[in-house]
Nucleic acid binder design. Structure first.
Length: 438
RNA sequence: UCCGCGGUAGCUCAAUCGGCAGAGCAGCUGGCUGUUAACCAGUUGGUUGGGGGUUCGAGUCCCUCCCGCGGAGCCA
Protein backbone atom coordinates (compact mmCIF):
# COMPACT_ATOMS: atom_id res chain seq x y z
CA UNK A 1 0.00 0.00 0.00
CA UNK A 2 1.23 3.47 -0.81
CA UNK A 3 3.32 4.73 2.08
CA UNK A 4 2.87 8.49 1.79
CA UNK A 5 -0.93 8.43 1.90
CA UNK A 6 -2.35 9.22 5.35
CA UNK A 7 -4.60 6.84 7.22
CA UNK A 8 -8.02 8.34 7.91
CA UNK A 9 -10.99 7.44 10.05
CA UNK A 10 -14.23 7.61 8.13
CA UNK A 11 -15.66 10.13 10.58
CA UNK A 12 -12.85 12.54 9.62
CA UNK A 13 -13.15 12.23 5.83
CA UNK A 14 -14.86 15.61 5.32
CA UNK A 15 -11.59 17.19 6.49
CA UNK A 16 -9.71 15.44 3.66
CA UNK A 17 -11.73 16.55 0.63
CA UNK A 18 -9.49 16.71 -2.43
CA UNK A 19 -6.75 14.62 -0.83
CA UNK A 20 -5.78 10.98 -1.14
CA UNK A 21 -6.41 8.89 1.98
CA UNK A 22 -6.13 5.31 3.06
CA UNK A 23 -9.20 3.84 4.75
CA UNK A 24 -9.34 0.45 6.46
CA UNK A 25 -12.50 -1.33 7.41
CA UNK A 26 -15.19 -3.79 6.47
CA UNK A 27 -17.56 -4.00 3.54
CA UNK A 28 -21.05 -3.14 4.71
CA UNK A 29 -22.66 -3.43 1.29
CA UNK A 30 -21.85 -3.42 -2.39
CA UNK A 31 -23.75 -2.34 -5.47
CA UNK A 32 -22.36 -3.03 -8.91
CA UNK A 33 -22.83 -2.07 -12.54
CA UNK A 34 -20.98 -3.50 -15.54
CA UNK A 35 -18.08 -1.13 -15.29
CA UNK A 36 -18.47 0.20 -11.73
CA UNK A 37 -18.60 -0.98 -8.13
CA UNK A 38 -19.91 0.96 -5.15
CA UNK A 39 -18.27 -0.36 -1.99
CA UNK A 40 -19.88 0.81 1.24
CA UNK A 41 -17.08 0.71 3.78
CA UNK A 42 -17.43 1.02 7.57
CA UNK A 43 -14.70 1.28 10.16
CA UNK A 44 -16.57 1.70 13.44
CA UNK A 45 -16.52 5.49 13.25
CA UNK A 46 -18.84 5.78 10.26
CA UNK A 47 -19.43 4.54 6.76
CA UNK A 48 -18.58 5.87 3.33
CA UNK A 49 -19.26 4.95 -0.26
CA UNK A 50 -16.14 4.07 -2.23
CA UNK A 51 -16.34 4.09 -6.02
CA UNK A 52 -14.36 1.69 -8.16
CA UNK A 53 -14.64 2.71 -11.80
CA UNK A 54 -13.35 0.59 -14.67
CA UNK A 55 -12.41 3.83 -16.44
CA UNK A 56 -9.62 4.52 -13.96
CA UNK A 57 -8.75 1.13 -12.49
CA UNK A 58 -7.01 -1.89 -14.05
CA UNK A 59 -9.08 -4.96 -14.83
CA UNK A 60 -7.48 -6.96 -11.98
CA UNK A 61 -8.65 -4.42 -9.41
CA UNK A 62 -12.17 -4.49 -10.83
CA UNK A 63 -12.13 -8.29 -10.54
CA UNK A 64 -10.98 -8.01 -6.93
CA UNK A 65 -13.92 -5.74 -6.18
CA UNK A 66 -16.26 -8.12 -7.92
CA UNK A 67 -15.15 -10.93 -5.60
CA UNK A 68 -15.67 -8.98 -2.35
CA UNK A 69 -18.65 -10.09 -0.29
CA UNK A 70 -20.30 -8.36 2.66
CA UNK A 71 -18.01 -8.07 5.74
CA UNK A 72 -14.83 -8.63 3.76
CA UNK A 73 -12.01 -6.69 5.43
CA UNK A 74 -10.03 -4.38 3.20
CA UNK A 75 -7.75 -1.42 2.88
CA UNK A 76 -8.38 1.14 0.14
CA UNK A 77 -6.73 4.28 -1.19
CA UNK A 78 -8.50 7.05 -3.05
CA UNK A 79 -9.33 10.73 -3.33
CA UNK A 80 -12.06 12.08 -1.04
CA UNK A 81 -14.66 14.17 -2.84
CA UNK A 82 -18.06 15.64 -2.24
CA UNK A 83 -20.84 14.12 -4.31
CA UNK A 84 -24.55 14.63 -3.80
CA UNK A 85 -25.28 11.19 -5.26
CA UNK A 86 -23.41 9.50 -2.44
CA UNK A 87 -25.20 8.65 0.82
CA UNK A 88 -23.68 10.99 3.37
CA UNK A 89 -22.54 13.48 0.72
CA UNK A 90 -18.93 12.27 0.47
CA UNK A 91 -17.27 9.40 -1.34
CA UNK A 92 -13.84 8.00 -2.07
CA UNK A 93 -12.75 7.64 -5.71
CA UNK A 94 -10.62 4.51 -5.47
CA UNK A 95 -7.15 4.12 -6.88
CA UNK A 96 -6.11 1.03 -4.90
CA UNK A 97 -8.02 -1.84 -3.30
CA UNK A 98 -6.32 -4.35 -1.04
CA UNK A 99 -8.53 -7.11 0.37
CA UNK A 100 -7.34 -8.36 3.76
CA UNK A 101 -9.86 -11.19 3.88
CA UNK A 102 -12.47 -11.95 1.26
CA UNK A 103 -15.76 -13.12 2.76
CA UNK A 104 -18.68 -14.50 0.80
CA UNK A 105 -20.88 -16.14 3.37
CA UNK A 106 -21.57 -13.64 6.15
CA UNK A 107 -24.58 -15.13 7.95
CA UNK A 108 -26.52 -11.92 8.55
CA UNK A 109 -28.04 -10.66 5.33
CA UNK A 110 -29.59 -7.34 4.43
CA UNK A 111 -33.06 -8.76 4.84
CA UNK A 112 -34.90 -9.25 8.10
CA UNK A 113 -33.99 -11.90 10.64
CA UNK A 114 -35.75 -13.40 13.64
CA UNK A 115 -34.72 -12.87 17.24
CA UNK A 116 -33.52 -16.43 17.72
CA UNK A 117 -31.18 -16.29 14.75
CA UNK A 118 -29.83 -12.86 15.67
CA UNK A 119 -29.21 -13.83 19.29
CA UNK A 120 -27.35 -16.94 18.15
CA UNK A 121 -25.16 -14.61 16.07
CA UNK A 122 -24.94 -11.79 18.59
CA UNK A 123 -21.17 -11.52 18.04
CA UNK A 124 -21.83 -10.68 14.37
CA UNK A 125 -25.13 -8.85 14.88
CA UNK A 126 -23.22 -6.18 16.84
CA UNK A 127 -21.78 -4.93 13.54
CA UNK A 128 -25.16 -3.70 12.34
CA UNK A 129 -25.94 0.01 12.23
CA UNK A 130 -28.59 -0.31 14.86
CA UNK A 131 -26.46 -2.20 17.35
CA UNK A 132 -23.51 0.12 16.77
CA UNK A 133 -25.76 3.10 17.51
CA UNK A 134 -26.98 1.54 20.75
CA UNK A 135 -23.45 0.74 21.92
CA UNK A 136 -22.32 4.30 21.14
CA UNK A 137 -25.15 5.71 23.23
CA UNK A 138 -24.35 3.25 26.01
CA UNK A 139 -20.77 4.50 25.98
CA UNK A 140 -21.92 8.13 26.08
CA UNK A 141 -24.31 7.42 28.94
CA UNK A 142 -21.58 5.78 31.01
CA UNK A 143 -19.32 8.75 30.30
CA UNK A 144 -22.10 11.17 31.30
CA UNK A 145 -22.59 9.39 34.61
CA UNK A 146 -18.88 9.45 35.39
CA UNK A 147 -18.70 13.17 34.54
CA UNK A 148 -21.82 13.98 36.56
CA UNK A 149 -20.50 12.42 39.74
CA UNK A 150 -16.94 13.65 39.25
CA UNK A 151 -18.17 17.23 38.89
CA UNK A 152 -20.10 16.90 42.16
CA UNK A 153 -17.26 15.58 44.26
CA UNK A 154 -18.28 11.93 44.31
CA UNK A 155 -15.55 9.31 44.29
CA UNK A 156 -15.99 6.10 42.37
CA UNK A 157 -15.32 3.23 44.75
CA UNK A 158 -15.81 -0.20 43.28
CA UNK A 159 -17.67 -2.78 45.33
CA UNK A 160 -16.80 -6.49 45.37
CA UNK A 161 -18.41 -8.98 42.99
CA UNK A 162 -18.07 -11.93 45.38
CA UNK A 163 -20.13 -11.37 48.51
CA UNK A 164 -20.51 -13.51 51.62
CA UNK A 165 -24.24 -13.17 52.16
CA UNK A 166 -27.42 -11.85 50.73
CA UNK A 167 -28.03 -8.15 50.74
CA UNK A 168 -31.78 -8.49 50.87
CA UNK A 169 -32.94 -12.03 50.27
CA UNK A 170 -31.27 -15.35 49.59
CA UNK A 171 -33.32 -16.99 46.88
CA UNK A 172 -32.23 -14.90 43.94
CA UNK A 173 -28.45 -15.15 44.13
CA UNK A 174 -25.98 -17.05 42.01
CA UNK A 175 -23.70 -19.06 44.24
CA UNK A 176 -20.14 -20.06 43.46
CA UNK A 177 -17.64 -22.33 45.16
CA UNK A 178 -15.19 -20.13 47.05
CA UNK A 179 -12.52 -22.67 47.87
CA UNK A 180 -14.85 -24.66 50.05
CA UNK A 181 -17.09 -21.82 51.18
CA UNK A 182 -20.09 -20.53 49.31
CA UNK A 183 -19.86 -17.06 47.84
CA UNK A 184 -22.58 -15.19 46.02
CA UNK A 185 -22.33 -12.92 43.01
CA UNK A 186 -23.24 -9.42 44.06
CA UNK A 187 -26.80 -8.25 43.94
CA UNK A 188 -25.92 -4.73 45.08
CA UNK A 189 -22.91 -2.73 46.18
CA UNK A 190 -24.98 -0.55 48.45
CA UNK A 191 -23.92 -1.93 51.82
CA UNK A 192 -20.29 -1.44 50.81
CA UNK A 193 -21.06 2.08 49.62
CA UNK A 194 -22.49 2.74 53.06
CA UNK A 195 -19.09 1.84 54.49
CA UNK A 196 -17.06 3.95 52.08
CA UNK A 197 -19.06 7.17 52.58
CA UNK A 198 -17.54 7.28 56.07
CA UNK A 199 -14.17 7.47 54.35
CA UNK A 200 -14.97 9.60 51.31
CA UNK A 201 -18.27 11.33 52.01
CA UNK A 202 -19.91 10.89 48.63
CA UNK A 203 -19.34 7.77 46.55
CA UNK A 204 -20.74 5.67 43.77
CA UNK A 205 -20.00 2.28 42.38
CA UNK A 206 -20.69 1.01 38.90
CA UNK A 207 -20.47 -2.61 37.93
CA UNK A 208 -22.30 -5.77 37.02
CA UNK A 209 -25.13 -7.05 39.17
CA UNK A 210 -26.44 -10.60 39.19
CA UNK A 211 -29.97 -11.82 39.76
CA UNK A 212 -30.76 -15.51 39.56
CA UNK A 213 -34.50 -14.97 39.27
CA UNK A 214 -36.10 -16.95 36.50
CA UNK A 215 -37.39 -13.84 34.85
CA UNK A 216 -38.28 -14.04 31.19
CA UNK A 217 -39.47 -10.62 30.15
CA UNK A 218 -38.31 -7.75 27.99
CA UNK A 219 -37.17 -5.88 31.10
CA UNK A 220 -34.95 -8.52 32.74
CA UNK A 221 -31.36 -9.67 32.49
CA UNK A 222 -29.56 -12.10 34.79
CA UNK A 223 -26.48 -9.88 34.57
CA UNK A 224 -26.92 -6.13 34.25
CA UNK A 225 -24.98 -2.99 35.09
CA UNK A 226 -26.07 -0.77 37.91
CA UNK A 227 -24.84 2.55 39.17
CA UNK A 228 -25.28 2.94 42.90
CA UNK A 229 -24.56 6.17 44.71
CA UNK A 230 -24.43 6.84 48.43
CA UNK A 231 -23.88 10.14 50.23
CA UNK A 232 -23.40 11.11 53.85
CA UNK A 233 -25.72 13.83 55.19
CA UNK A 234 -28.11 13.21 52.28
CA UNK A 235 -31.75 13.05 53.26
CA UNK A 236 -34.64 11.78 51.17
CA UNK A 237 -35.23 15.13 49.50
CA UNK A 238 -31.55 15.50 48.52
CA UNK A 239 -31.68 12.01 47.14
CA UNK A 240 -34.67 12.64 44.89
CA UNK A 241 -33.20 15.95 43.67
CA UNK A 242 -29.95 14.26 42.69
CA UNK A 243 -31.82 11.59 40.73
CA UNK A 244 -33.70 14.26 38.80
CA UNK A 245 -30.50 16.15 38.14
CA UNK A 246 -28.68 13.03 36.97
CA UNK A 247 -31.39 11.99 34.55
CA UNK A 248 -31.85 15.47 33.10
CA UNK A 249 -28.07 15.74 32.71
CA UNK A 250 -27.82 12.33 31.04
CA UNK A 251 -30.62 13.01 28.60
CA UNK A 252 -29.17 16.40 27.64
CA UNK A 253 -25.79 14.79 27.03
CA UNK A 254 -27.16 11.98 24.87
CA UNK A 255 -29.29 14.41 22.86
CA UNK A 256 -26.27 16.64 22.36
CA UNK A 257 -23.73 13.97 21.46
CA UNK A 258 -25.74 11.17 19.91
CA UNK A 259 -28.13 12.83 17.47
CA UNK A 260 -26.97 10.62 14.61
CA UNK A 261 -27.33 7.45 16.64
CA UNK A 262 -30.82 8.40 17.85
CA UNK A 263 -31.79 9.08 14.22
CA UNK A 264 -30.47 5.65 13.22
CA UNK A 265 -32.70 4.18 15.90
CA UNK A 266 -35.60 6.36 14.72
CA UNK A 267 -36.10 7.48 18.29
CA UNK A 268 -38.83 10.09 18.78
CA UNK A 269 -36.56 12.60 20.54
CA UNK A 270 -39.42 14.99 21.39
CA UNK A 271 -40.29 12.61 24.20
CA UNK A 272 -36.78 13.06 25.62
CA UNK A 273 -36.45 16.80 24.96
CA UNK A 274 -39.55 17.36 27.09
CA UNK A 275 -38.19 15.60 30.15
CA UNK A 276 -37.68 18.23 32.86
CA UNK A 277 -37.32 18.36 36.62
CA UNK A 278 -39.00 18.33 39.04
CA UNK A 279 -40.53 14.95 38.29
CA UNK A 280 -44.04 14.26 39.56
CA UNK A 281 -44.29 12.42 42.88
CA UNK A 282 -46.98 9.99 43.81
CA UNK A 283 -47.56 8.78 47.35
CA UNK A 284 -47.98 5.00 47.48
CA UNK A 285 -51.37 5.49 49.15
CA UNK A 286 -52.55 7.72 46.29
CA UNK A 287 -51.15 5.32 43.70
CA UNK A 288 -53.21 2.50 45.23
CA UNK A 289 -56.28 4.69 45.20
CA UNK A 290 -55.78 5.61 41.54
CA UNK A 291 -55.26 1.97 40.62
CA UNK A 292 -58.49 0.96 42.31
CA UNK A 293 -60.47 3.84 40.88
CA UNK A 294 -59.17 4.11 37.34
CA UNK A 295 -57.22 1.06 36.27
CA UNK A 296 -59.28 -0.84 33.71
CA UNK A 297 -59.94 -4.59 33.75
CA UNK A 298 -59.22 -5.14 37.43
CA UNK A 299 -60.94 -8.19 38.85
CA UNK A 300 -59.99 -7.61 42.48
CA UNK A 301 -59.10 -4.39 44.26
CA UNK A 302 -55.42 -3.78 44.90
CA UNK A 303 -54.73 -4.18 48.61
CA UNK A 304 -52.82 -1.51 50.51
CA UNK A 305 -49.57 -3.13 51.62
CA UNK A 306 -48.97 -5.20 48.49
CA UNK A 307 -46.10 -4.40 46.18
CA UNK A 308 -46.88 -3.22 42.67
CA UNK A 309 -46.64 -5.72 39.86
CA UNK A 310 -45.74 -4.92 36.29
CA UNK A 311 -49.32 -4.05 35.23
CA UNK A 312 -49.69 -1.58 38.11
CA UNK A 313 -46.33 0.02 37.35
CA UNK A 314 -47.28 0.40 33.71
CA UNK A 315 -50.60 1.95 34.66
CA UNK A 316 -48.95 4.45 37.00
CA UNK A 317 -46.29 5.52 34.51
CA UNK A 318 -48.92 5.95 31.80
CA UNK A 319 -50.49 8.74 33.86
CA UNK A 320 -47.41 10.90 33.22
CA UNK A 321 -45.13 11.93 30.37
CA UNK A 322 -42.31 12.45 32.85
CA UNK A 323 -40.55 9.90 35.01
CA UNK A 324 -42.56 9.57 38.22
CA UNK A 325 -41.44 8.94 41.79
CA UNK A 326 -43.56 6.60 43.85
CA UNK A 327 -42.90 7.39 47.52
CA UNK A 328 -43.81 6.25 51.00
CA UNK A 329 -44.11 2.52 50.50
CA UNK A 330 -45.44 0.63 53.52
CA UNK A 331 -42.61 -0.57 55.76
CA UNK A 332 -43.38 -4.23 55.10
CA UNK A 333 -42.89 -4.03 51.32
CA UNK A 334 -39.32 -2.78 51.35
CA UNK A 335 -35.80 -3.72 52.43
CA UNK A 336 -34.65 -3.81 56.06
CA UNK A 337 -32.18 -0.93 55.78
CA UNK A 338 -34.71 1.74 54.79
CA UNK A 339 -35.55 4.44 57.31
CA UNK A 340 -39.18 4.95 58.32
CA UNK A 341 -40.66 8.35 57.56
CA UNK A 342 -40.86 10.25 60.89
CA UNK A 343 -44.14 11.85 59.71
CA UNK A 344 -45.67 8.51 58.69
CA UNK A 345 -43.79 5.80 60.60
CA UNK A 346 -45.62 2.96 58.85
CA UNK A 347 -44.00 4.04 55.56
CA UNK A 348 -40.35 4.32 54.53
CA UNK A 349 -38.30 7.20 53.11
CA UNK A 350 -37.91 5.36 49.84
CA UNK A 351 -38.83 6.05 46.26
CA UNK A 352 -38.96 4.10 43.03
CA UNK A 353 -38.56 6.06 39.83
CA UNK A 354 -40.66 4.79 36.94
CA UNK A 355 -39.60 5.76 33.42
CA UNK A 356 -42.28 6.88 30.98
CA UNK A 357 -43.45 5.08 27.82
CA UNK A 358 -43.91 1.84 29.73
CA UNK A 359 -40.21 1.32 30.53
CA UNK A 360 -40.90 0.76 34.20
CA UNK A 361 -38.68 1.04 37.24
CA UNK A 362 -35.19 2.38 36.56
CA UNK A 363 -34.24 3.65 40.03
CA UNK A 364 -34.79 2.40 43.53
CA UNK A 365 -33.54 4.57 46.37
CA UNK A 366 -34.00 5.39 50.01
CA UNK A 367 -32.73 7.11 53.08
CA UNK A 368 -31.02 4.49 55.23
CA UNK A 369 -31.76 3.61 58.82
CA UNK A 370 -28.91 5.21 60.77
CA UNK A 371 -29.95 4.18 64.29
CA UNK A 372 -28.29 0.99 65.54
CA UNK A 373 -31.19 -0.28 67.66
CA UNK A 374 -33.77 0.28 64.95
CA UNK A 375 -31.56 -1.39 62.34
CA UNK A 376 -30.87 -4.46 64.49
CA UNK A 377 -34.58 -4.80 65.09
CA UNK A 378 -35.34 -4.69 61.36
CA UNK A 379 -32.71 -7.32 60.58
CA UNK A 380 -34.40 -9.58 63.13
CA UNK A 381 -37.86 -8.93 61.68
CA UNK A 382 -36.59 -9.87 58.23
CA UNK A 383 -35.16 -13.13 59.54
CA UNK A 384 -31.64 -12.24 58.43
CA UNK A 385 -28.52 -13.65 60.14
CA UNK A 386 -27.39 -11.01 62.61
CA UNK A 387 -23.75 -12.23 62.64
CA UNK A 388 -23.31 -11.51 58.96
CA UNK A 389 -24.24 -7.88 59.50
CA UNK A 390 -21.89 -7.06 62.37
CA UNK A 391 -19.64 -5.00 60.12
CA UNK A 392 -22.71 -3.18 58.83
CA UNK A 393 -23.87 -2.47 62.39
CA UNK A 394 -20.41 -1.03 63.13
CA UNK A 395 -21.21 1.75 60.68
CA UNK A 396 -23.98 2.81 63.11
CA UNK A 397 -21.64 2.49 66.08
CA UNK A 398 -18.81 4.71 64.92
CA UNK A 399 -19.99 8.11 63.81
CA UNK A 400 -23.40 7.32 62.34
CA UNK A 401 -24.92 10.08 60.21
CA UNK A 402 -28.04 10.43 58.11
CA UNK A 403 -27.34 9.14 54.60
CA UNK A 404 -29.13 8.11 51.44
CA UNK A 405 -28.53 6.51 48.12
CA UNK A 406 -30.06 4.95 45.04
CA UNK A 407 -29.39 2.37 42.35
CA UNK A 408 -29.90 3.16 38.66
CA UNK A 409 -30.10 0.38 36.08
CA UNK A 410 -28.00 1.09 33.00
CA UNK A 411 -29.74 -1.18 30.53
CA UNK A 412 -33.26 -0.12 31.45
CA UNK A 413 -32.27 3.52 31.21
CA UNK A 414 -30.58 2.89 27.87
CA UNK A 415 -33.58 0.94 26.59
CA UNK A 416 -35.76 3.92 27.44
CA UNK A 417 -33.45 6.55 25.89
CA UNK A 418 -33.05 4.46 22.73
CA UNK A 419 -36.70 3.44 22.54
CA UNK A 420 -35.81 -0.27 22.50
CA UNK A 421 -38.59 -2.82 22.71
CA UNK A 422 -36.37 -5.31 24.55
CA UNK A 423 -33.54 -4.90 27.05
CA UNK A 424 -31.42 -7.56 25.33
CA UNK A 425 -30.24 -5.01 22.78
CA UNK A 426 -28.99 -2.66 25.51
CA UNK A 427 -26.00 -4.82 26.47
CA UNK A 428 -23.40 -6.32 24.10
CA UNK A 429 -23.76 -9.91 25.28
CA UNK A 430 -27.01 -10.32 27.23
CA UNK A 431 -27.18 -13.00 29.89
CA UNK A 432 -30.73 -14.27 30.04
CA UNK A 433 -32.59 -17.32 31.21
CA UNK A 434 -31.10 -20.25 29.25
CA UNK A 435 -28.93 -17.91 27.18
CA UNK A 436 -25.20 -18.12 27.80
CA UNK A 437 -23.95 -18.22 24.21
CA UNK A 438 -22.08 -16.49 22.70
C1' U B 1 -42.11 -22.65 38.22
C1' C B 2 -46.91 -21.25 35.78
C1' C B 3 -49.91 -19.36 31.38
C1' G B 4 -50.13 -18.36 26.00
C1' C B 5 -47.87 -18.69 21.00
C1' G B 6 -44.44 -21.00 17.86
C1' G B 7 -40.46 -24.63 15.40
C1' U B 8 -41.20 -26.10 7.26
C1' A B 9 -34.73 -24.51 2.30
C1' G B 10 -28.80 -20.71 4.72
C1' C B 11 -32.62 -16.44 6.21
C1' U B 12 -37.99 -14.60 6.44
C1' C B 13 -42.39 -17.07 5.74
C1' A B 14 -46.74 -19.79 2.93
C1' A B 15 -49.10 -24.67 2.32
C1' U B 16 -57.44 -24.53 2.08
C1' C B 17 -61.03 -30.28 4.75
C1' G B 18 -55.54 -35.01 6.23
C1' G B 19 -54.28 -35.76 -0.56
C1' C B 20 -47.72 -34.34 -5.47
C1' A B 21 -43.73 -29.43 0.22
C1' G B 22 -43.87 -23.66 -2.23
C1' A B 23 -42.40 -18.22 -2.55
C1' G B 24 -39.19 -14.02 -1.60
C1' C B 25 -34.24 -13.10 -0.18
C1' A B 26 -29.27 -15.14 0.08
C1' G B 27 -26.01 -18.47 -3.00
C1' C B 28 -24.60 -19.87 -8.05
C1' U B 29 -24.64 -18.57 -13.73
C1' G B 30 -25.37 -14.69 -17.10
C1' G B 31 -26.87 -9.50 -18.15
C1' C B 32 -26.84 -4.24 -16.86
C1' U B 33 -22.69 3.08 -18.00
C1' G B 34 -23.54 6.32 -10.91
C1' U B 35 -25.79 2.47 -7.69
C1' U B 36 -29.01 4.00 -2.98
C1' A B 37 -31.93 -2.75 1.23
C1' A B 38 -29.58 -1.41 -6.82
C1' C B 39 -32.08 -3.93 -10.78
C1' C B 40 -33.31 -8.00 -14.78
C1' A B 41 -33.23 -13.35 -16.46
C1' G B 42 -32.03 -18.33 -15.29
C1' U B 43 -30.81 -21.89 -11.45
C1' U B 44 -29.13 -25.09 -6.99
C1' G B 45 -31.19 -26.00 -2.38
C1' G B 46 -35.94 -30.10 2.23
C1' U B 47 -34.79 -36.14 7.73
C1' U B 48 -41.27 -30.09 7.85
C1' G B 49 -37.30 -29.79 15.93
C1' G B 50 -36.72 -35.46 18.08
C1' G B 51 -39.42 -39.97 19.27
C1' G B 52 -43.99 -42.69 19.26
C1' G B 53 -49.21 -43.27 17.60
C1' U B 54 -53.99 -42.89 14.38
C1' U B 55 -54.73 -43.37 8.93
C1' C B 56 -54.81 -46.14 2.35
C1' G B 57 -52.21 -41.45 3.04
C1' A B 58 -49.64 -36.77 8.30
C1' G B 59 -46.11 -30.35 7.70
C1' U B 60 -51.47 -30.78 9.04
C1' C B 61 -54.77 -35.06 14.00
C1' C B 62 -53.22 -37.49 19.10
C1' C B 63 -49.25 -38.51 23.00
C1' U B 64 -44.42 -37.23 24.64
C1' C B 65 -39.75 -34.82 24.92
C1' C B 66 -36.52 -30.73 23.29
C1' C B 67 -35.81 -25.73 21.81
C1' G B 68 -37.41 -20.62 20.98
C1' C B 69 -40.69 -16.28 21.69
C1' G B 70 -44.11 -13.32 24.77
C1' G B 71 -46.13 -12.66 29.61
C1' A B 72 -46.68 -13.59 35.18
C1' G B 73 -44.16 -13.77 39.90
C1' C B 74 -39.40 -11.04 41.36
C1' C B 75 -36.76 -6.86 40.43
C1' A B 76 -32.78 -2.31 37.93
Amino acid sequence: MTEDVSQALIMHLPQHVGKAVCVRGWLRNKRSGKNIHFLILRDGTGEVQCVASGDSLPAETMQLCDALGIESSLEVVGIVREDARSPGGYEVALSEVKPLQVVNDFPISKKEHGVEFLMEHRHLWLRSRRQVAILRIRDELEKAWADFFYERGFARVDAPIFTPAACEGTTTLFDVDYHGDTAYLTQSGQLYNEATIFALGRVYCFGPTFRAEKSKTRRHLLEFWMLEMEAAFFEQEDNLRLQEELLVFSIARVLQKCGRELATLQRDTDKLVNIAAPFPRLHYRDAVEQINRQMPDRAEPFRYGDDFGAPEETFISQQFEQPVFVTNFPVGTKAFYMKPDPDEPDTVLAADLLAPEGYGEIVGGSQREDDLDALEKRVGEHGLPREAFQWYFDLRRYGSVPHSGFGLGLERTLAWLCGLSHIREAIPFPRMLHHLYP
